[in-house]
Design a protein around this nucleic acid. Structure first.
Ligand SMILES: [Mn+2]
Ligand SMILES: [Mn+2]
Ligand SMILES: [Zn+2]
Ligand SMILES: [Zn+2]
Lengths: 143, 143
DNA sequence: ATATCACATTAGATATAGTCTAAGTTCTCA
DNA sequence: TGAGAACTTAGACTATATCTAATGTGATAT
């Protein structure tokens, strides 16, 4: 996705395309990792323009609200973010906390009535276990 | 589940049944809410013995490791906990952050190969949206 | 019974993640 | 061109969770 497309997707949701906001979005779209806010802050500041920590948080919040970015909360660690490109599920490593994408597949709906008066917006599967690096025999061999 | 059963489940996993640890477990088993560590700390201290904040965190960590308790990370809020009784999924409210249980149902496995070298321990579905209280028309009507 | 030692608890200090404030800047549009 | 809205900023602040080092407790061995 090119610069124009990012610009359009921002403006379609009522957000101005500022250099700081563009940089966050562009960075998230070009990685398949799930960086933390601190990593995003550092990455967008390796090139100009300088963006503040508050702005990074503000923009992540706005992008999540706009539905362009997903936030993944992880027990005991900083939240991670990804651009919502293709629909997908997530695998979260018990040991290192890394988040990895798992191909999307449709879920069976919950038993009718079990959602009651709730309004469902989305559902996702979280897989947990050990990532390839942390699994015994994996490359980790952490010192 | 009675006191003896809790005691046994703790000792089966190699944990001593201390009054503080028992109190955390008993409290989690008798509620269908998903209290935060602060709420658990307060609840177990409404009755003796007094338990410290550090002990509450220590015990929650131990109980999660032992597989008796589940921790639910929520974006921008304190983690919540529940006793792993019956298997179930979770609904998390976008607005108030409340976690509610959804009846268990089996998931289709991910496409073969899509888990690659990872070791899968468990999977769960997270539903998101508005809880009954927060849905328009719900009782919330927040001032 | 008593010594021993691993397990557990504690208060408070510390660390980490995220939010808020108040002032300044840039964009939009009348 | 002027006014207001949207945005950015540094740094103070808050919330959540972990760590430290001293103390307490209970199971086991002798
Ligand atoms: Mn992802
Ligand atoms: Mn639950
Ligand atoms: Zn890992
Ligand atoms: Zn709600």
């Amino acid at each position: 996705m090119d610069a124009e497309a990012i610009k359009r997707s921002l403006e379609d949701t009522g957000l101005r395309c500022t250099p700081q906001r563009y940089a966050v979005m562009a960075f998230l779209m070009e990685t398949d990792q799930h960086p933390t806010s601190a990593e995003i802050f550092e990455a967008v500041n390796r090139v100009d323009p300088r963006s503040s920590r508050a702005t990074t948080y503000n923009n992540l919040r706005d992008l999540v609200q706009a539905g362009l970015v997903r936030e993944v909360a992880i027990e005991g660690r900083a939240a991670r973010f990804d651009a919502k490109g293709m629909r997908h599920h997530h695998f979260i490593c018990d040991r290192c906390g890394n988040v990895e994408d798992i191909d999307w597949y449709d879920l069976p709906s919950p038993a009718p009535g079990s959602l009651d008066k709730r309004i469902l917006r989305e559902s996702e599967v979280i897989f947990r276990g050990l990532c390839a690096k942390c699994a015994p025999g994996g490359a980790s061999r952490q010192a």
